[in-house]
Amino acid sequence: MLAAQALASAAFHDGYYGVAFPFFGAERRGAPVLAFARIDREKIYQKTQIYEPDCVVVLDDKLVDLVNVAEGLKQDGIAIINSSKKPDEIELEREAKVAVVDATTIALEVLGTPITNSAMLGAFAKATGIISMDALEKGIMDIFGPRIGVERAKRNIEAAKKAYESTDIGVCKGGRMFEKGKKWLPNWDELPIGLATRALKTDVGLVGIGSFVENKTGTWRTFRPVINKEKCVNCLLCWFYCPDGAIKRVSDGVEVDYDYCKGCGICANECPVKAITMVR
């Protein structure tokens, strides 16, 4: 969201009009979210979500496996993807122009956290040529500066520059199939009174109480905890403290359930014998 705002702000500095806004779902920090930006030489009156973009920026390459990111992308459009792969190793729904940058590594090096938005803006500037690096620097400072302070905004500019220099442009493979998003849409006579949700098994999965187990939150993760069984003293603190119930008690201690682990790192931070390390 900040990235979209910084992009729109950068557009102003290059003499464009720019509009940016996020799509708010019920998800929390770390969950996949959407933000939109429009840039034009003319005044922008259209304020809707963008369904046929000229450019898609994907901040996390795990999304490429889960979501059809090329959906609606214009024929001559470009997908800019945070990935350590080469452009021709990326597989989307169809062949398309792609720009690839390893923004997670850059963000970790420059910022110390895996927040990739500023680096991805650098890749955008390189891949599209719409916005100059000069304008982007000003845009990042406009939006990030008041939020996180000038010093940290400067480091974000550095991340953007680094990404600008290492962005790789090419063409990706096509032919990947995606399932359409499935939803539980009951008829009126199937809906329980008062919209109460009983535990039901529907043809699109569980609904009702306990049904969130089918929501695998492991995709949010950047770092994953690894338990050294030899050091573990089975104190169960990690099991107690895990916000996601992703640490399971087993007969000989504890195990991580990577389907749900969001990689927060509480377990590694709290382990009294340092038996847990976070690895990428």
């Binding site: 019920a26 998800e27 929390r28 920090r29 770390g30 969950a31 306990g210 969130f212 187990v213 089918e214 929501n215 695998k216 939150t217 949010w220 993760r221 107690f240 403290y241 895990c242 916000p243 996601d244 119930g245 992703a246 359930d257 389907d259 749900y260 969001k262 990689g263 927060c264 790192g265 509480i266």
Partner: peptide, 16 residues
């Protein structure tokens, strides 16, 4: 009885 798969931020205190 509060299952995994909820959408709290990573490291959420209330989720614990």
């Amino acid at each position: 009885y509060f299952t995994s798969g909820h959408t709290a931020c990573p490291g959420c205190g209330p989720a614990i």
